[in-house]
Simulated assay, not measured.
Amino acid sequence: MNDALVVLEDRDACEDLLREAAMYAKGADRDLVLYSPLTTEEFEEAASTLDEIGRVENREYNDDEILGVAFTFARELASDALEDMDVEWSIVADVVEERTANHIVDVAEEHDCDHVFTLGSQRSPTGKAVFGDRTQRLILNFPGYVTTKMN
């Protein structure tokens, strides 16, 4: 059985994306893999915040606890968006330099997903040509289905 990967980034837009993915998963009898990546910058920001909390609590937080920020984000989002849906889901979190299409493809393949749900962003054709477009590269490079919700 192949599952569906849902790339979580923006809380508000991802709730709708999760609901769409859940409807697909329920109809296709699939599970969802919720992918919650932190960029290096976001990881360092969370580490700094937890450092300040740790000073007050007189304790140190390790990297796994810092990565827990990504797990917590995904868990809270899924609890809100999927509470009335009868769908199994799991969370994958990691730290990446940047969220690239190739990395998303790797995660999807690693978790046996044949469908990816992701957010897209509106760009002009010139913007796509100059800066590239992650969603476009994902659609071109992923060997399965890609569903994009425009953010």
Score class of each variant (00 low, 15 high):
64 D>F: 12
44 E>S: 14
79 S>K: 15
92 V>G: 00
58 N>W: 00
107 V>P: 00
125 P>F: 07
135 T>D: 05
20 E>A: 14
38 L>Q: 12
118 T>C: 15
26 K>G: 01
50 L>Q: 09
87 V>H: 10
105 V>T: 12
106 D>F: 00
91 I>R: 07
130 V>K: 07
45 E>W: 07
76 E>S: 11
76 E>W: 01
123 R>S: 13
139 I>Q: 14
50 L>R: 09
79 S>P: 01
119 L>Q: 11
40 T>Q: 08
85 M>K: 10
61 Y>L: 09
65 E>A: 06
42 E>R: 15
125 P>S: 08
135 T>N: 05
75 R>W: 04
130 V>W: 05
134 R>F: 01
59 R>V: 12
120 G>V: 02
33 V>C: 07
119 L>T: 06
55 R>T: 08
120 G>W: 01
58 N>Q: 09
114 D>S: 13
97 E>P: 04
78 A>M: 06
95 V>P: 02
76 E>P: 00
128 K>L: 05
63 D>E: 15
60 E>T: 12
98 E>N: 10
118 T>N: 13
73 F>C: 11
55 R>K: 14
108 A>D: 03
41 E>K: 13
127 G>W: 08
112 D>R: 06
46 A>W: 04
116 V>C: 01
56 V>D: 11
15 E>F: 06
15 E>C: 10
105 V>N: 08
46 A>G: 02
80 D>P: 00
129 A>N: 03
70 A>P: 10
69 V>N: 06
124 S>Y: 05
40 T>D: 07
132 G>D: 03
28 A>H: 09
29 D>E: 14
80 D>R: 15
38 L>C: 05
64 D>Y: 13
48 S>V: 00
53 I>S: 03
131 F>A: 14
24 Y>H: 15
30 R>D: 07
16 D>F: 12
74 A>F: 07
58 N>P: 00
75 R>N: 11
30 R>T: 02
120 G>K: 02
116 V>G: 01
89 W>L: 04
90 S>E: 15
53 I>E: 08
81 A>C: 11
38 L>P: 04
55 R>P: 00
97 E>R: 12
108 A>T: 02
42 E>D: 13
55 R>S: 13
